[in-house]
Amino acid sequence: MKPRVLIVHASGTNRDQDAAAAVDMAGGHPEIIHINALRDGDVGVLDYQMLILPGGFSYGDDLGAGRLFATVLRHRFGDDLELFAGEGRPVLGVCNGFQALVKSGLLPAIDGSHNQQATLTRNASGRFECRWVELVPERQSPCVWTRRLTEPVYCPVAHGEGRFYAPGAALRAIERSHLVALRYHVPPDIDPYPANPNGSSNHIAGITNPAGNILGLMPHPENHISPRQHPRRHRGETQGSGLAIFINGIEYAASL
């Protein structure tokens, strides 16, 4: 049985179909469900083995990126979500979904607390950035989504508010607990921009929770699942598929 994967569509979500394509290719069964249908009780979060909060501009990001999405999630499905995550089922938040996970307190959830502990704020460049980045997996991270990745993941970022920031103590706790799952690859001795496209602290691109079943990241691994999407395919390069992250997630979900 293919794991059933819930991809939540809030009004303004726009990479739901991209995420579905990645799940499909990784061997899962994606279902894109509008948040209104979840609310109406047609289907429930707990009917699924995996949850993806995809990229986009939920509710226009008018009140800050992912803020209202986070509020709606907590108010409508807070208990289900905590149960879902607490049971160790895999959750992925990409870009806007990452912002919502952080702003709803599901990430990084240091010490099990579900208060907001970090944030994703405006890029240091002051503008939206769309470019490909290289993501280095952190070996010691407990994250199930990035385990056994042997090579960097290469995929695009496309965001205006992706600068990861946490106050000193929280940042130290995140590092100490190895909650950083992915970092932007910044070669030494050069200007970190644009390799780190947004000015994130410690070049953090994605983080996990202490249990390792939740991953949030700003870049879009779902937009590099086929060699044809590689920007240097005309030069014969194919490495760094983002599909590996989805395969990890599906395998993990299937093992539960």
């Binding site: 990229g55 939206f128 695009p156 496309a158 937009n223 999407q229």
Partner: peptide
């Protein structure tokens, strides 16, 4: 150009920029 998302939908197989440094 980089202020525009040219990757969403995953169908952009010929990008706005090319080469080893794009």
């Amino acid at each position: 150009v980089r202020q525009y998302d040219h990757e969403v939908r995953g169908g952009t197989v010929g990008k706005p920029f090319a080469g080893p440094q794009s």
